[in-house]
Design a binder for these strands. Structure first.
Length: 590
DNA sequence: CTAGGGTTAG
């Protein structure tokens, strides 16, 4: 809801509510009379209206306006309450007006609580320079003001250096200060940094980490796929008796899911004593879906409904995707229809995208086309990507070429369209087409993203890129790699060079470029640095390529290891020569 | 009831 451009308390002379939906509890039945009463009793009375003012920001500002109009001299508490309302209603203009009043009456200089609230209001309204000026006008700022300003620096689009600088200059930091920085790290993709900051927090001994701290830390380990760190964080929670509420339990479920350890997620889900929110259920559902446990996802959905929980958009997105993954076309249609019929949720583009994915993955391209026809919006790039991927899998070359060109038009800077389209031409044996696409890609200045894979060992993350020679154990790794290649050849495996899209004519070079894919390097490293039988967990930045997928299936059998690869968006649990994805998610190399 | 919390397919 956009904030009104002019504050109510300066423009309106009546007290007719302008908000369509007053927040519960309802506003007082006779607001006008109360406001008049408030005005007549002047500042002494303002505190007695505190409770009511807190409930409704707009009313609070109107009451304050009446105080001013009556010529009263509002006390600091009245300013503080009115400013809190500005903060809640994100009312920039009102904050500025109150600032002017408070400054004129000298309240600002003498009352740090008023100053703190003003810093707060400006910070949450995205007016950092204003917040800074008010803050700098005081000499006795409290932790509240410091933390509010810190939050202002941590806002979206803020300057990271300025944030860190301000944090470092704080005279002292409490858990809220640390948590503000940690959540900034997670929100800005600085997951490794989050771990570093958390370590600094522990070392500083300034304060105890709490459940909010742990949400950020656990989430960072989830993104990194840093399983040992994630386990350590969960152990820390248990050891220190950190309270696990529904947000922390969701984060833990998410962490175990994103590390490919579904049973860990289930453990947290089933054993968390707190009342679980819909988000907790959704986290578990997403965990099952991403790990290819379609049947368990469907069961969980049934359990949700029998408990009387009301599923939301995310629930349906996830459940339709579980159907898509499991090839359960009819069930997917049923859930999609149930969403709007039973729960009144209008499908958004993501839901239509899931349906296109569901149909096209199953080879039902006419059905996928119907969805695109009936939906009230234009297909987006991700929908075209799903469709195009399926065209490749099902060798629907004619449709694939059309969709491919459309995708490149829609997302010219995304390498996915070029890669998929050139795969389609390659399948058709149309090498001229392949080269044209490659040229198009170069013309647009689109770069291939280098593949990278990481393995965690004793809490340290070892990252490899294709053909990487920088690791300290590179000699051992490459020795292992050539042993691996030999073992693979003994089983009759031949490298699948058909979709290597480099401009390479020499088959040998193509083969060796495949052999040096980052996931193979990571697995070679995993095999030589962990005890026999230990599962190897690999985190990939891209989708796994078809050749690696085939090779890793064999390796899991040859070396009797379970190998868990987290891809750009899914998991592959390799065990005894097969993969949990049922070969449904394999993509070509790039 | 003064500040800090993640999650949605491909």
């Amino acid at each position: 809801m956009p904030p009104p451009t002019v504050p109510f308390f300066l423009t309106s002379t009546t007290l007719t509510p302008t908000t369509k939906k007053p927040q519960p509890p309802p506003p007082p039945c006779d607001a006008q009379a109360q406001a008049a009463a408030a005005a007549s009793q002047a500042s002494a009375a303002s505190a007695s209206y505190a409770a009511r003012m807190r409930l409704n920001p707009h009313l609070a500002l109107r009451l304050f306006d009446h105080l001013l109009r009556s010529g009263a001299d509002p006390d600091p508490a009245a300013y503080a309450l009115a400013l809190a309302s500005c903060a809640r209603g994100r009312d920039r203009a009102a904050a500025a007006q109150l600032h002017a009043h408070a400054a004129k009456r000298g309240v600002l200089a003498s009352h740090r609580r008023v100053r703190g609230r003003l810093v707060h209001a400006y910070a949450v309204c995205g007016m950092l320079p204003h917040a800074r000026r008010v803050f700098d006008g005081g000499t006795d700022n409290d932790m509240f003001a410091w933390n509010c300003l810190l939050r202002g620096y941590a806002r979206e689009g803020g300057d990271a250096d300025a944030l860190h600088d301000f944090f470092a200059r704080m005279p002292s930091r409490d858990s809220i200060s640390w948590n503000t920085v940690l959540s900034w790290c997670v929100a800005n993709g600085e997951y490794g940094e989050a771990i570093v900051v958390f370590r600094e927090m522990l070392v500083s001994q300034e304060c105890q980490p709490d459940r909010v701290t742990l949400v950020s830390v656990v989430s960072a380990t989830a993104y990194l796929g840093a399983f040992a760190l994630g386990l350590w964080a969960h152990a820390y929670v248990i050891r220190k008796g950190v309270e696990v509420d529904e947000k922390l339990s969701s984060a833990l479920i998410n962490m175990y899911s994103k590390c490919g350890f579904v049973e860990g997620a289930v453990y947290v889900f089933e054993n968390t004593a707190v009342k679980m929110s819909l988000d907790t259920w959704n986290a578990m559902l997403v965990g099952f879906t991403a790990n290819g446990c379609s049947a368990r996802a469907l069961e969980l959905f049934t359990r949700m409904e029998s408990k009387g929980l009301v599923p939301n958009k995310i629930t349906f997105n996830s459940i339709v995707n579980a159907c898509s993954h499991g090839g359960l076309v009819d069930e997917g249609i049923r859930y999609f229809e149930r969403m709007s019929r039973v729960y009144g949720i209008e499908p958004d583009i993501a839901h239509y995208g899931c349906m296109v994915d569901l149909f096209s993955r199953a080879g039902l391209f006419e059905k996928a086309g119907e969805i695109i026809q009936i939906m009230p919006m234009e297909p987006d790039a991700s929908m075209l990507k799903a469709l195009l991927g399926a065209c490749r899998t099902h060798k629907n070359l004619e449709l694939g070429k059309k969709v491919g060109h459309r995708l490149i038009e829609a997302a010219p800077n995304d390498h996915a369209g070029y890669v998929l389209l050139s795969n389609i031409y390659a399948l058709d044996g149309d090498w001229g087409g392949v080269h044209k696409v490659r040229k198009l890609m170069l013309d647009h200045g689109v770069l291939k993203i280098p593949g990278s894979s990481s393995v965690e060992l004793n809490g340290v993350i070892h990252e490899f890129i294709s053909g990487d020679k920088s690791h300290s154990r590179k000699r051992d790794i490459y020795k292992m790699l050539s042993e691996i290649c030999q073992q693979l050849k003994n089983t009759g495996y031949t490298p699948d060079t058909s979709q290597v899209l480099l401009d390479i004519d020499d088959e040998d070079v193509k083969e060796s470029s495949l052999a040096l894919h980052s996931e193979k390097l990571a697995i070679a490293f995993g095999l030589i640095s962990t005890a026999p039988g230990t599962p190897i967990r690999v985190v990939n930045n891209l989708r796994i390529c078809g050749d690696c997928h085939h090779a890793i299936k064999l390796l899991s059998k040859i070396y009797r290891r379970s190998i868990i690869v987290r891809d750009a968006n899914r998991f592959h649990h390799f065990r005894e020569g097969s993969c949990s994805c049922g070969d449904y998610w394999v993509k070509s190399s790039i």
